[in-house]
Design a protein around this nucleic acid. Structure first.
Length: 891
RNA sequence: GCCCAGUUGGCGCAGUGGUAGCGCGCUCCCUUGACAUGGGAGAGGUCAUAGGUUCAAAUCCUAUACUGGGCACCA
């Protein structure tokens, strides 16, 4: 016998291990010629610590899809893995070192990387273990890491192939430099933040004396590197100055006034200081006007020797000092408050410094074109569709991708330079995974590898095929590629999804996945992002301990509407835990009412012709069939939340609250033969529902299925090997649903009456039904037992000759009037009040419908069914009204 | 500045043409042989605003406001 409440822990550890040991999600999809498998590659979590709630959501959704497809008979392959995480991971390690007052340089590159390696493999273990605990049906034999040997091979192959095709180049460009992380970043690794700042107006005098002009800037310290001032060519104020020279204050350097269209005359003073080395726009202006590049800020964020007296100061200190000196020299004309957005590093949030430096870039235009075409031709679809447009726009305006990073943790760039030749003009380094024996130019054997590593996203971009052995063109690759669907958050749509599409198309000529399912971010209940500093994080592991894994999964799934963020609160877990308990107890009930041992072949449902079943049996089977088909339709569109909700409603409302209650009539009766039908129906419907719920709540459903399976004649070792609930359509019955609805209405009306008239719940009362259509009357008396049982009646009988018992309360439902004699209990004024309220409500409705039917345009233009519907609604309302008024009069 | 999404009962959300549903919360009643992590009943919404299309609008169109997001600019 099951316990009274569901205790998740023992059930979870039992099945978690069993699934793994039996290789339930093993390599069934291994290279073979079987049916096309459902393939998913995990968005590999960074090896920076433990699983957070966002991972829980992401992986729950994937697991739901994977289990769903497996349930429906498809081979599945979900590849587990982790990401080395480049800057993010190195930062965490560096913070640890900092706590010991050390930097990575104290360890040296080799020791640092090896300590990263051992630390990251610890994290890897933790994360994968947590994914397993979440119930994820991953193919554990395929575990991959973005920096393991197989993935390194793919990285080298991709780099080399890009190099050969001229898709990768090294060049000196303006890049986003994170001073704190000490590395270049790509454009999409920069986020923009509104920050309070100032706009300083600085006067630059004309060379040799004269008025000169005033520029406006938010970054005065960069003036030390100014090599021009730009104005709009049509700006009358400055027309006379174009071509003249100004004297740069503090540096006493001559700089020209140039005319350039990009200058906005209405902003600031209409004159812009130009610092080609430290501003992307200025860099372009400099290019157009042949201006010199003077780097005054170094990669360490300090002023360089070019900054004269300011050399060695930090950016911030230099700003203060420059302003102070300008003020002292009378050059600072004005200081205004100014809000502007500042680019910050997505990993450490410190202000990014635009800097000219030599980096590796991937040429993106030609890679983006096939990816765009794939969307256009529908070979790649994004769910929800609304993310398609931003995706297309980003690809259409793509810029070259800076892929070199000045950190140590990552794939070292596979490029080798000859020490003797590297400074020569037109020198071409050698590309390859291992060190070349000698330099082809000079035969020298002193070759140095590029010290930089690749952007972590470079290896991530190859993930959907590197995990299947690419560049080897084995059967494993051809069998699994392209994968079926990728599930991820919108925050990495460009960083990752787009790049996988591009590299997949480039490497294999086919999209890496046909569908991308984009989910939202899990936020706190107020809608704020969860963060350690805000202290609003919800730890999925703590939640699993507290409420059970299935509760956590269901709670996330039922809120995961496509593309929408989830305001998550711990309270939502209570509801899901209660639902798990409801499942547990409904199974407990069913098992209590089944024979002790299952007959050979189970309790067959096939033996009952539809007409041999009771109305409630046919009804629940019809509802069940409808639920299955709805659920399947929703899952096809990745409407996971809606599917979860449909199942929840069916199990709790229809199955438990109505069917189980009605089944008790026969199960608690003395007629043994009558128990066969409800037993078979209970077993089949519950088992099928558990199967459908399994992808959402794998543990509890697996456990309960194990007890139920003999009763439906199944012997599979695991639920997922038992086949999907089938069929459904043969049980569809609009008639059963309609008829049961009529009876439910009667029960509800009588319950309301009891509650409002304060009839003690234990007191059985009788009800007399009057009037109504013969169809409804026949139905009512045929299934009078339902009403008696559910409304707790002592008797339900028809009225004779319009007999109306005195001292009765009245309810109107399904076209009939029900009199409930309540002598001694009834409060007549209360009853009158109750009925008058109902009359008022109905009068409004009848009037509304009458107006509609009296509207000639409606009658003429509305479709026939609509007119008929309104007519019958009107007749219905009037009939009820008539009955109630009748009763009121006689009261 | 451009684009996208959202705005529905106290809270969180469903609902793509016939005047609204769910969960939580709230009120009242009930420990009845699956479950109090339960059952029954109830209160509570002119679906952001203003126009328009339509016989009919939460739903379609336009504008506005607010919120969130993407992109660009940001001297």
């Amino acid at each position: 016998m099951l316990d009274k409440t569901y205790d998740p822990q023992p059930v979870e550890s039992k099945w978690c291990g069993a699934w793994r040991r039996s290789k339930l999600f093993g390599s069934q999809a291994a290279a073979s010629s079987g049916p096309k498998p459902f393939v998913v590659v995990i968005p590999p979590p960074n090896v920076t610590g433990a699983l957070h709630i966002g991972h829980a959501l992401n992986n729950t959704l994937q697991d739901i899809l994977v289990r769903w497809h497996k349930l429906h008979g498809r081979p599945v392959c979900w590849v587990p893995g982790t990401d080395h995480g480049g800057i993010a991971t190195q930062n965490v390690k560096e913070r640890q070192l900092k706590a010991e007052n050390k930097t990575r340089h104290d360890l040296g590159r080799e020791a640092f990387v090896s300590s990263m390696q051992s630390w990251s493999s610890e994290c890897k273990k933790t994360i994968l273990g947590q994914l397993e605990r979440l119930g994820c049906g991953l193919d554990w034999d395929r575990e991959a890491f973005t920096m393991d040997a197989a993935r390194a091979k793919a990285v080298h192959a991709a780099f080399e192939s890009y190099w050969k095709k001229g898709l990768i180049y090294r060049g000196e460009r303006m890049v986003n430099w994170c001073v704190r992380c000490g590395t270049a970043l790509s454009d999409i690794e920069v986020e923009y933040e509104e920050r309070k700042g100032h706009l300083w107006h600085i006067h630059y005098p004309l060379k040799g004396g004269g008025e000169g002009l005033t520029v406006a800037t938010t970054r005065p310290e960069t003036m030390l590197g100014d090599t021009a001032v730009a104005v709009h060519p049509k700006d009358a104020r400055y027309a006379g100055l174009i071509g003249k020279s100004l004297t740069l204050p503090l540096m006493e350097r001559d700089i020209p006034v140039v005319a350039d269209d990009v200058v906005e005359s209405s902003f600031g003073t209409g004159a812009v200081k130009v610092t080609p080395a430290h501003d992307p726009n200025d860099f372009e202006i400099g290019g157009r006007h042949g201006l010199a590049l003077i780097k005054v800020i170094g990669p360490d964020g300090k002023m360089t020797s070019e900054a004269g007296a300011y050399a060695g100061l930090s950016r911030e200190k230099a700003r203060d000092k420059v302003l102070e000196d300008l003020k002292a020299g009378g050059r600072l004309v004005k200081t205004e408050d100014h809000r502007h957005s500042v680019g910050v590093c997505y990993r450490c949030m410190s202000a990014v410094e635009p800097l000219v430096s030599k980096q590796w870039f991937v040429r993106m235009k030609d890679l983006a074109a096939p990816a765009l075409k794939a969307v256009e031709e529908g070979r790649f679809r994004i769910y929800p569709e609304s993310w398609t447009k931003p995706y297309v726009e980003w690809l259409s305006n793509i810029r070259d991708w800076c892929v070199s990073r000045q950190i140590w943790w990552g794939h070292r760039i596979p490029v080798w330079y000859c020490a003797a030749c590297r400074e020569k003009d037109g020198y071409k380094p050698q590309v390859g995974a291992s060190q070349p024996a000698s330099c082809p130019d000079c035969g020298g054997t002193v070759l140095e590898q590029d010290p930089d590593v690749l952007d972590t996203w470079f290896s991530s971009a190859l993930w959907p095929f590197s995990v299947f052995g690419w560049p080897d063109q084995g059967p494993d690759l051809s069998f699994h590629y392209p994968t079926s669907v990728l599930v991820t958050g919108y925050e990495i749509l460009y960083l990752w999804v787009a790049r996988m599409q591009m590299s997949g198309l480039e490497a294999l000529g086919q999209v890496p996945f046909e569908h991308a399912v984009i989910h939202g971010i899990v936020r706190d209940k107020k809608g704020k992002k969860m963060s350690k500093s805000l202290g609003n994080v919800i730890d999925p592991l703590v939640m699993m301990d507290k409420y059970g894994t299935d509760a956590l999964r269901f709670s996330l799934a039922v809120q995961a509407h496509p593309g929408r963020d989830i305001p998550f609160s711990e309270e939502s877990l209570t509801g899901s835990r209660n639902f798990a308990n409801k499942l547990w107890n409904s199974t407990r009930f069913v098992l209590m009412n089944l024979p002790e041992t299952a007959p050979e072949g189970g309790l067959s449902l096939k033996g009952f012709a539809p007409e041999a079943l009771d109305l409630c049996d046919r009804w629940i089977l019809a509802e069940y069939a409808q639920t299955l088909s709805r659920c399947r339709g929703l899952m096809k569109e990745y409407e996971v939340a809606a599917a979860a909700d449909v199942l929840y409603g069916f199990l709790w409302d229809r199955f438990c609250d109505w069917y189980v209650e009605l089944a008790k009539i026969r199960l608690q009766g003395a007629d043994e033969a009558a128990k066969a039908a409800p037993r078979a129906v209970l077993a089949h419907v519950l088992t099928g529902t558990l199967k459908m719920l399994h992808p959402f709540m794998p543990y509890i459903t697996e456990e309960l299925y194990a007890s139920l399976k003999p009763f439906v004649g199944e012997h599979a070792d695991f639920l997922l090997r038992s086949g999907a609930p089938e069929p459904g359509s043969e049980w569809e019955s609009a008639g059963a649903i309609r008829e049961m609805g009529r009876l439910i209405d009667v029960v509800k009306a009588l319950r309301t009456l009891r509650s409002e008239m304060c009839v003690p719940p234990g007191l059985r009362i009788s009800a007399i039904a009057e009037g109504g259509e013969s169809r409804d009357r026949d139905l009512l008396f045929k299934y009078g037992e339902y009403v008696r049982f559910l409304a707790r009646l002592s008797e339900l009988k028809p009225s004779h000759d319009g007999e109306r018992p005195p001292h009765s309360a009245t309810a109107v439902a399904s076209g009939m009037t029900f009199f409930v004699p309540l002598e001694g209990v009834i409060d007549l004024s209360k009853e009158r009040q109750r009925l008058e309220k109902e009359v008022g409500r109905l009068e409004v409705e009848a009037a509304r419908l009458a107006a509609k039917l009296g509207d000639a345009v409606f009658m003429e233009r509305a479709p026939r069914e609509q007119v008929d519907l309104s007519r019958s609604q009107h007749a219905d309302a009037n009939a009820r009204l008539g009955r109630l008024k009748d009763v009121l009069k006689s009261l």
